[in-house]
Design a binder for these strands. Structure first.
Lengths: 147, 147
DNA sequence: TCCTTTACTTGAGTCATTCAAGTTTGCTGC
DNA sequence: GCAGCAAACTTGAATGACTCAAGTAAAGGA
């Protein structure tokens, strides 16, 4: 199904702004709101930042987008929904990279003990340094290359 | 070792405010900054909120406290450091509960593929409803009790 | 006890995000 | 094709968590 169909299926109206958001997020790599806003304006002309926030929330509630909120950095969005893949986040530059889970099909969805909670989702974030930032750290401080 | 010793070991000065923070966080249950501030003021009299922020950062950098930052809710702190246990977070009331990992000793620290990242930490958050909020949801809307 | 450095205070500032009120537009039903 | 209504969008202001900056107080080694 195309984006317009998915929007309708979620009970949302089809607008140029929302189609542009879907395409921008889909073609981008875990973009933040500001970057999505820029991309949308390039595609369809001036759209207010608030409209982007509003639509992103609607799209997320409708299950068309997934929201990623690494501690200490602005919210990002991706179109890969429905699986429960996880994310690598670079401590230095904030880059986010998808990663499949190590433990099978419904990974990490079952904690050792749920303490009576009704668990519906597991968020897993691996923190570290991405390859470019590793290289940079190595060349800047050769003695601490292993960090 | 007591808190004063741990502070010194981390290269930090021992002050009444910091000891009060350690005790407040240690006796509390994943408190946020505002609650810690209240607790500290009850113990040692007026301490500025900024001092609490500053100290919490210092204590976290020194490895005496662990910071938990669930998406969409203010930062919380706990004294259980050094293991890599995970957290259950209630979507409704924000309560945070410790949980050991399902997959052994160094749980989840190894993603299926690290994409070249140098991973040093894994954050795992299970989202759901805590027992009191489940009960509340059940009595409020019996037809959706399973949600 | 002095002196340096760290911690604390007060006050202002930032940033991502939300709220509110009014206008425009998609889309259902005539 | 057109009217009417709810959803979406615009503009502008507000919020909340947190940080920055400059000056004062106090910890702890010399």
């Amino acid at each position: 199904m195309d984006d317009a169909g998915r929007l309708r299926q979620a009970g949302l109206r089809v607008t140029a702004a929302r189609l542009a958001i879907m395409r921008t997020v889909g073609e981008g790599d875990h973009l933040d709101v500001e970057a999505i806003h820029r991309g949308v304006c390039e595609r369809v002309g001036q759209v207010s930042l608030q409209a982007v926030y509003d639509s992103l929330n609607a799209l997320q509630r409708g299950g068309l987008l997934r929201r990623i909120e690494p501690a200490g950095s602005p919210t990002r969005y991706e179109t890969r929904v429905g699986d429960n893949h996880h994310h690598l986040v670079c401590r230095h530059c904030g880059r986010v990279t998808d990663v499949d889970c190590a433990v099978g099909h419904a990974p990490c969805l079952e904690p050792a003990s749920d303490a009576g909670y009704l668990v519906d989702e597991a968020d897993v974030i691996y923190w570290g340094l991405c390859p470019p930032c590793r290289a940079e750290a190595r060349s800047a401080r050769p003695d601490t290359a292993r960090v």
